[in-house]
Amino acid sequence: MTTTGVVAHLVLVALLGYLAWLTPVMSARSVRFGVRVPDDRIEDPVVQRETTRFRTRVLAAGVVIALAGTGLILAAGIALLPAAVLAMLAVWYLLYFRANRVITAAKREQDWYAGVRQGVAVDTSLRNDPPRFPWPWLLLPALVVAATVVAGVLRYPGLPATLPMHFSGGTADRFAPKSVGSAFRIVFVQAAMTVVLCVSGVLVFRGPADVDPARPAASARAHRKFVTRLGTAMIALATLIDLGLFAAAWASWDASPNAGLLLPLTIGPVAVGVALLVFVVVGRNRDREPGEHTGLSHRDDDGNWIGGVLYRNADDPSWFVARRFGVGWTVNIGNRVALVTCLGLTAVVVLFGIFLPYILR
């Protein structure tokens, strides 16, 4: 149905647009659009102006992409959801990169770090007394995956000879012969996503802390609170994505050609999970405690970052470093061993996903 395509398109564009709009607050306190700034420049007029411009243009681009996509769906029945997603991502990064360049230029011209005492702070207690990972919570996504597997096994004998593989506007438009691969393809994706998100949640607790040298004690305590909330949010996201994929699998198993109407049920749980994760990330700087200030600022390490996104430092033995935007880590592309290993693992995962349906057929 056309209505389903329009709703899915608008929801995806709105979600990506909102995430892009939150970019200025989804980073460490002393990083603005990928640029390291001293404490007294965090609210600099240049930073504030670029933040306003970035958000205004993100909203304008989101409206244009939403209207263009809706027009294509209504006029020609073409739902180009991947194109809309790619367009929003491209606009997001181009505007981010522009703000990064403008702030970098202002920082260089005005010599923001002149006379600033730079330092590095480390929380050594993270090794001896790390935050406790909520292991019992892992049972939630595991139970959803198990329920999906059981439902699939029970329904498999009664499935039709051909199963829907793709839906357009709520109606199946591509089919495949019944097999373990075609019937359980979504279950395999569900299991893989669960492993990736839960492992990521575990790794959050083992990642290095970005301790603010201006407020070392307060930022160390804030880091502990943040990773605890983030790890729990990652598990919650895995659980909610699994619920959405359960609905998608059920739609694939349904014999009705309009089973795709169940697919919107996948959007709701995923949107809630993403919103929860974003709420935790945006709140990473809320636990600041007033009073403490050592007079130091983070060292100016912009020379190791390309566009505020890629980290390159051949002198750093670390394979991964904390991202300057969002959460998680990015690979040190200056470390050749780390780069080749990560590219190899990525290639293996992609090839596995491509050929798995043929192996199980």
Rank of each mutant, 00 (worst) to 15 (best):
G115W: 14
L154C: 05
S200T: 11
P357S: 06
L59C: 04
M1S: 09
V321F: 00
R55V: 06
G169H: 01
V189Y: 05
R98W: 09
D173W: 02
A192L: 12
R36L: 14
F97R: 13
R108W: 02
V149Y: 10
L261K: 06
H298E: 15
Q48H: 09
P82T: 03
F188M: 11
V282Y: 10
T3Y: 10
D123N: 08
A142K: 07
G170Y: 00
T294R: 03
K225M: 02
L95M: 04
A161P: 00
I78Q: 14
F279S: 14
L310N: 00
R127S: 08
A271D: 13
A322H: 13
W21M: 03
L277P: 04
L72D: 11
L237P: 12
A147W: 12
V46F: 10
Y93G: 03
W137A: 14
A251Y: 02
R323I: 01
L19Y: 02
L356M: 11
A183W: 01
R155T: 08
G69C: 08
P213T: 01
G353L: 06
V340L: 14
A238E: 09
R229G: 01
A87G: 12
A90H: 02
S125E: 11
G17L: 04
Y96H: 09
S30P: 10
G119D: 14
L139D: 09
T171H: 08
P136E: 07
A20L: 03
D129K: 07
R29W: 11
V340F: 15
G62V: 03
P160Y: 05
G260H: 00
R32F: 08
D254E: 11
A75P: 04
P177I: 00
A259S: 12
D301E: 15
A121N: 10
V144D: 10
A99K: 06
N304D: 15
D129C: 02
F226W: 05
I354V: 11
G181Y: 05
S297C: 15
L277E: 11
N313E: 15
H293F: 07
R36M: 15
W319N: 14
A214G: 13
P216K: 00
S168N: 04
V150C: 13
G334F: 13
Y113R: 12
R284F: 05
V227H: 00
L163A: 04
